Amino acid sequence: MHLIVSQLSIDAADPTALARWWSRVLGWTVTDEEGDGEEVELAPADGSATGWLFLRVPDERRVKNRLHPDLRPPDGSDQATELVRLLELGATPVDVGQQDVTWHVLADPEGNEFCLLRSTPADLARAQAGPGEQPTG
């Protein structure tokens, strides 16, 4: 029997603000917002992914994340469109030494890195179904 991932916990200076920001990015719902703002949970309304739990911590982030989300543009959109949207929401470009790659490294308002990949789910499915090169980003 295997373990089940209950949620991904993310340290935050302001859990409420960060959960609301990610809610706009992912289109997910803030499902549990503890009254004192110490813990705020975010999850997709349809339960299609593991939820994220934002926890208040007193210390500042000092180094590059050891774990980060890779986000894929939804079908019907593309990387360039989503990049503009993310930047308008307040994401910032980050250089972590990635050099010449097909994805964009960005940071949320608290500096947590994430990547915006190039291919959509349909692009990825087509590449995996047929012969040829699979997209890497």
Rank of each mutant, 00 (worst) to 15 (best):
M1P: 09
H2E: 07
H2I: 08
H2V: 11
L3G: 15
I4M: 09
I4N: 12
S6D: 14
S6P: 02
Q7M: 14
I10G: 08
D11I: 01
D11S: 11
D11T: 08
A12V: 13
A13F: 07
D14C: 15
T16F: 03
T16M: 07
L18H: 04
A19I: 03
A19K: 02
R20Q: 09
R20E: 11
W21M: 08
W22D: 12
W22S: 06
W22G: 01
R24A: 08
L26P: 05
L26R: 06
W28A: 01
W28S: 00
T29M: 04
V30I: 14
V30F: 03
T31S: 12
D32C: 02
G35M: 13
G35W: 08
D36C: 10
G37L: 07
A43V: 11
P44F: 08
P44T: 10
A45N: 06
D46R: 01
G47D: 10
G47A: 06
S48F: 08
S48M: 06
A49P: 01
A49L: 08
G51L: 03
G51E: 00
L53E: 02
F54C: 05
L55V: 13
L55Q: 10
R56H: 15
D59H: 15
D59C: 13
E60C: 11
R61D: 03
R61I: 03
R61W: 07
R62I: 14
V63E: 11
K64H: 14
K64A: 14
N65W: 01
L67G: 10
L67T: 15
L71N: 08
R72P: 04
R72W: 13
P73V: 04
P74V: 04
P74N: 08
D75R: 05
G76S: 03
S77A: 05
S77Q: 00
D78Q: 00
D78P: 01
D78C: 14
Q79F: 12
Q79C: 09
T81L: 09
E82R: 09
L83E: 13
L83T: 01
R85T: 05
E88P: 01
E88G: 00
L89I: 00
G90C: 09
G90E: 08
G90S: 09
G90K: 10
T92D: 10
T92I: 03
P93T: 12
P93G: 02
V94P: 06
D95C: 08
D95G: 09
V96P: 12
G97Q: 04
Q98E: 13
Q98C: 00
Q99G: 13
D100F: 11
V101D: 09
T102L: 14
T102I: 07
T102V: 12
T102Q: 12
W103A: 06
W103K: 05
W103H: 04
H104L: 07
V105L: 02
V105M: 14
V105G: 01
V105A: 07
A107G: 13
A107H: 12
D108I: 05
P109H: 05
P109L: 03
E110A: 03
E110Y: 02
G111R: 01
G111T: 04
N112D: 01
F114P: 10
F114M: 13
C115T: 07
C115G: 06
R118D: 09
S119P: 02
A122R: 13
D123L: 06
D123R: 10
D123H: 10
L124Q: 09
A125W: 00
R126I: 02
A127S: 15
Q128K: 14
G130H: 12
G130L: 11
G132N: 04
T136E: 15
T136M: 14
